[in-house]
Design a protein around this nucleic acid. Structure first.
Lengths: 349, 349
DNA sequence: CTGAAAGCGCTTACAG
DNA sequence: CTGAAAGCGCTTACAG
């Protein structure tokens, strides 16, 4: 501890560009230009400065640079949580997206300031005003409407903001190609030989993607000359519980079914559990496919077929759209391509 | 788009503390003090300034404040990935930890700068030098040794750094109470009536926690008058594949077993899959418990018993230890408490 | 309790 | 190609 203290004191003096300038025998402005890679400085000088900086273990103070340039080189990522939700229990889909956003930002030379927000005392998106970030990416649950209204207002007032799957059309958004994905899922069931395919999902949810997926399902069902059927999920429950209850409602309805398309994986996991526990075997008695491609669906028994968005593309598109908004340019891309993950739960033997 | 442009131009002029000063009829220094809540300013003045700031929609430019104070109010969180690993496929345990770290930092008034790092071109922890963060929290896989060596060097050279489950003792670390957790898991199996309990794990892995868990297992086994047995996992594979192969090795060995303690959940999921596919029923033919409490284990069929660290405590301890390191204070806590998640995979009926 | 002034460490016109 | 100087927007001794 004591040695550390003396070390800490030695580090208290900060090496600045003036020190490097003295060391290299040039002016401070030249140091700044050389280190920034300004092509106007001669190669010889650039090397001399770089060498001096290395010797002194110098790094640019990016706070000072930012103050001068007005740019932060940082993007804020806000993850909206349910008010009562533990931070560790977030939807894994959200976490995957967070990972690819940070990766995409990094590749483009930006840092990412991440925060998890839920209640009103917790909502704060004024990163631009406080000069902490150049713009903001919003992801997370659509079920926290207060939070989305807060950010909608900020978006209206000119804040640079893009989001994943917004419940509102007046924000800049990116989403999975839900329609195409639902067609893919439904066609997959049809091709496997299933005929009485029920959709467990919603026409009215704030989750716009649920409606989009239901529409895609209907289109594929009609194209095959079959009849669509929807079990609407109950609001205000966990996805797993919604899935369980939808199965009970389906069974109680007497409606015949040989396969289920659940509009998200967490729903599908509840469906799977309820069916299995009540003696319906997957896929022998009932085929099942979800949507989102979360890891848990691969670990389910049997492994659950799903539709997976290209997460890497999703992160890149969110970052690129935000950078376009910041630059005041147009950015038309909105839909992330999806693909089929065919696993055992849809294998008709 | 055109309306937005004019708006953007109008916002181009930045409101500063001087503008607020003029509006409130006080000096700029008073504005700074009033907004910082300095108790020396009179209540009347403070209110007048706050009102003026609100009218002008003013926010402190935190870059400027930081330049002046030398503090960033930011903690860097670096997630170490495997070099070949997709950002979206990270261990869910890591993501849960990331969530609770960000939450704990936020409660303590700090922002979190998050980055995912893998290869050498990608490693950069010099947040302090560049004045981007006051310190760094390191989490993620222990399997990327290059990355850990890089950060070990930074830690040695005085950087403020704490990590989760370091492979090195000379860094400041926090870990689950692995010994107690393993005892909990093993006693749980013993109490359920299992007697031939095999551990699938490692004595030599860089993952120190694997050894700690194995030791806890041995202690509980010996205390019950039973005989321990370890199947050592093979290096360089995915955890799931390691689990599968360990089961094959176990079966090939002819060693009798009626339960398995897998030292992490991802391993346990591979074990579960291999056993189920080869006709061994869980828990009727073999009990199974993992460690880490990841979500996928709850969704497995049957749901997998596990040992769960208190993630909220883990995030808080990491942040508190880092803040202690930054302040030059001692912080003794290192072990995160764990608890048993008893599910079907250990239910002996 | 309040104000005038210095200075944090850069970048970037402006000269040469 | 390089240097001297201004200034980004704050906080905080120093006076009063």
């Amino acid at each position: 501890m004591d040695e550390d203290n003396s070390k800490a004191k030695a580090r208290n003096y900060r090496v600045t560009s003036f020190d490097v300038a003295a060391e290299a025998g040039v002016s401070q402005s030249t140091v700044s230009r050389a280190l920034a890679g300004d092509p106007v400085v001669s190669e010889a000088t650039r090397l001399r400065v770089a060498e001096a900086a290395r010797r002194l273990n110098y790094s640019v103070d990016e706070n000072a640079a930012r103050l001068r340039t007005g740019k932060t080189g940082t993007l804020a990522v806000v993850v909206i949580c349910r008010p009562d939700e533990d931070r560790k229990d977030l939807n894994p889909f959200t976490y995957s997206l967070l990972g690819t956003i940070c990766a995409a930002a990094s590749v483009r030379g930006y840092e990412t300031l991440v925060s998890f927000q839920d209640g009103p005392q917790n909502l704060s998106g004024r990163y631009e005003e406080r000069r902490k970030a150049d713009g903001l990416i919003l992801i997370g649950t659509t079920q926290n409407l207060d939070a989305w209204n807060y950010y909608r207002d900020l978006g209206q007032s000119g804040m640079k903001l893009v989001c994943w799957g917004s419940p509102f059309d007046d924000l800049e958004w990116i989403r999975s190609d839900n329609h195409a994905g639902a067609v893919l899922a439904t066609d997959h069931l049809i091709n496997a030989g299933f005929r009485q395919i029920v959709c467990i999902g919603s026409e009215n949810s704030l989750q716009r993607q649920f409606k989009e997926r239901y529409d895609g399902y209907c289109e594929a069902i009609h194209a095959a000359g079959l009849t669509p059927a929807l079990i609407e999920i109950e609001e205000g429950l966990s996805r797993e519980e919604q899935g369980r209850r939808a199965v009970r409602a389906l069974k109680a309805s007497g409606q015949p079914f040989d396969a289920i398309f659940a509009v998200c994986d967490e729903l599908a996991l509840g469906v799977l559990r309820e069916l299995t526990e009540t003696g319906t075997r997957i896929p022998q008695d009932c085929g099942l496919i979800g949507f989102d491609g979360i890891r848990a669906s691969a670990h389910a028994m049997p492994p659950l077929s799903s539709i997976q968005p290209d997460f890497t593309a999703a992160g890149a598109m969110l970052v690129d759209k935000l950078l376009a908004v910041i630059a005041g340019k147009a950015h038309e891309q909105r839909r992330v391509p999806v693909s089929l993950l065919a696993r055992e739960s849809t294998r008709r033997s």
